[in-house]
Simulated assay, not measured.
Amino acid sequence: MAEVRENDAGEPAQRTMTPFDDIYDQTDPRAFFRELGAFGYRTPHHAQRVFRRLAALLLRAPGDAVLDLCCSYGINAALLNHDLTLDDLYAHYTSPRVAAMTTEELAEHDRSFFRARRRRDAVPVIGLDIAPNAIAYARAVGLLDDGYAENLETAPPTRDLLDAARSIRLITITGGASFLSRATFQPLLDTARTLPWVAAFVLRTGSYEPIAEHLAGHGLTTETYTGHTFVQRRFTGAAEQQYAIDAVTAQGQDPEGKESAGHFHTTLHLSRPAADASTPSLDELVAR
């Protein structure tokens, strides 16, 4: 549950984001799309174009792969490798037909659903998440080429994960950055045959600086996109909104027109070797 305290009026004031813990490790993604869809969750939509452009740029040799951190049910992989939008996934997983299926029936249906929409330029995607059910589902329906339910913040990576990490050329993140530290990135960067780029959409309520500093130690320069921010989702209520406004302000950012207008917002950070810092520019990668 979210931590709360009393505000000056003696009313509960939320101190963290509303947790959706019950939806992240179910046997299939329906609850994830139903509950987050109710609040207009959009980050994978914003990331889709950027990740496709980066994958086309970086994944050139046989076996090159994307690693999606905090990958959940393989949503970024679905959008990267299939002719689908996030809205298509919402419509799919909240449809009456899908709602009536068992998990086994849905998995069989999804294998055909995604296979029929596979792009010719699809790339290998490895998923890493602490949720074993979500990983298992994404692998079962063909969204992830490999998936690992491991928490590198609390335990070293398995040999299988390190073997897979050798092929990583791009690391993507659309959620969960606040839970990550050097403990997660260190073994992945140390193992990769070629230093991968890191593209992360990060909530403005926290700082990406500790991760950027660690990546700098590996020779990666982090650039922050300043053209605009990206809507994540609506707030669950006034308490969560006040938490976000306070947190963003504490980070030295202005919530006006963003969090004050009713939504969490993310910022895109791209880390790459200094020699590649302008090829292409971050503005080109984000351009609509």
Score class of each variant (00 low, 15 high):
A140L: 06
A140H: 03
A140D: 02
A140I: 04
A140S: 11
A140R: 00
A140G: 08
V141D: 01
V141R: 00
V141Q: 00
V141H: 00
V141S: 03
V141W: 01
G142A: 03
G142K: 01
G142L: 00
L143A: 08
L143V: 03
L144S: 12
D145L: 04
D145A: 09
D145I: 07
D146M: 10
D146A: 15
D146T: 15
G147V: 10
G147N: 02
G147Y: 00
G147I: 05
G147K: 05
Y148N: 12
Y148L: 04
A149N: 08
A149W: 03
A149P: 11
A149V: 06
A149Q: 12
E150Q: 05
E150F: 06
E150A: 01
N151F: 09
N151Y: 15
N151H: 11
N151R: 14
L152D: 06
L152A: 01
L152G: 05
L152W: 11
L152K: 07
E153P: 03
E153T: 06
T154V: 14
A155K: 07
A155H: 14
A155G: 02
A155E: 14
P156L: 09
P156G: 13
P156R: 05
P157Y: 12
P157G: 08
P157Q: 10
P157F: 11
P157S: 12
P157H: 11
P157D: 10
P157V: 04
T158R: 05
T158V: 05
T158S: 09
T158F: 13
T158P: 11
R159K: 15
R159W: 12
R159E: 15
R159C: 05
R159Y: 04
D160C: 01
D160M: 01
D160E: 13
D160A: 01
D160R: 03
D160F: 00
L161I: 09
L161P: 11
L161Q: 15
L161R: 10
L161V: 11
L162A: 06
L162C: 04
L162G: 09
L162S: 14
D163N: 15
D163M: 08
D163Y: 11
D163E: 15
D163K: 14
A164H: 07
A164Y: 09
A164F: 15
A165S: 14
A165H: 10
A165D: 12
A165E: 14
A165G: 08
A165P: 15
R166V: 10
R166G: 06
R166K: 05
R166D: 05
S167W: 02
S167A: 01
S167M: 00
S167D: 08
S167C: 03
S167Q: 02
I168M: 07
I168N: 00
R169W: 13
L170S: 03
L170K: 10
L170P: 05
L170H: 09
I171S: 02
I171C: 01
I171R: 04
I171N: 02
I171V: 10
I171A: 01
